[in-house]
Design a protein around this nucleic acid. Structure first.
Lengths: 110, 110
DNA sequence: AAAATTAATCGTAATATTGCGATATAATAA
DNA sequence: TTATTATATCGCAATATTACGATTAATTTT
């Protein structure tokens, strides 16, 4: 039946999953890297750089924003997007926590 | 139309997305943490620890294996799963690379 | 004011994910 | 051998994601 059952898992695990979900599409990874590489924030230039339609890019931006990783500021007719520093560092810490929790099992395994 | 268009993006971005995808469900995060916490590898104990059916857990394991993050060793009727050290470290590096590419823009942004 | 630009949203189609029960497969135990 | 246990896979239903064109709403430009 239904898709999800997320409530059954810890808040932390859901948080990690949420951040990971945001990175789970190459277009979104590419967008984030674009935002990072251009110190100054961009807007619809993102669309030009992506091999996707305007509406599709807009949806990816929406998802990144929903995950908290980016924020957008309206500047007249344009919108300026950039990394949300606080959430970004938060996500970074969650990921690092997860990945560094594992210490190579000294031959105990498989 | 279709879902995906992944070929349009770089191999690296696809790789990050693939790893992220594996972490994009709280059940899979929980499974990974379980495998990490029990030094010695587990098998169907995972099923007991998860609020999901055997078949669903099996599918999550399959996805984690497909992403390369874990590997399974058949031991008689049972299967012993554990973190795949090499791929794990690889994924870790990819994530750290992405997350540390961003240096707080000194007030230039939004 | 009319036309053009920018970006979000709606509607829709194609596909993927999540989840479960039932079934299949293989190994161990009785 | 038959029953039991352990996992994987199949088939199906519910939902979510990805993508696009068309439309909308809000600026700017002309």
């Amino acid at each position: 039946m239904g898709a999800t059952k997320a409530e059954e898992f810890s808040v932390k695990d859901n948080r990690v999953a949420r951040y990971a979900r945001a990175l789970a599409h190459p277009a979104r990874v590419a967008i984030l890297k674009l935002l990072i590489s251009r110190q100054t924030c961009i807007c619809g230039d993102i669309v030009d750089e992506m091999p996707l339609s305007q509406s599709t890019v807009s949806q990816h931006l929406k998802e990144l924003k929903a995950a908290g990783l980016i924020k957008g500021d309206i500047e007249g007719a344009k919108v300026c997007y950039c990394i949300d520093e606080v959430e970004w560092n938060n996500a970074k810490n969650y990921m690092i926590d997860l990945f560094s929790a594992y210490k190579a099992a000294d031959g105990k395994c498989c």
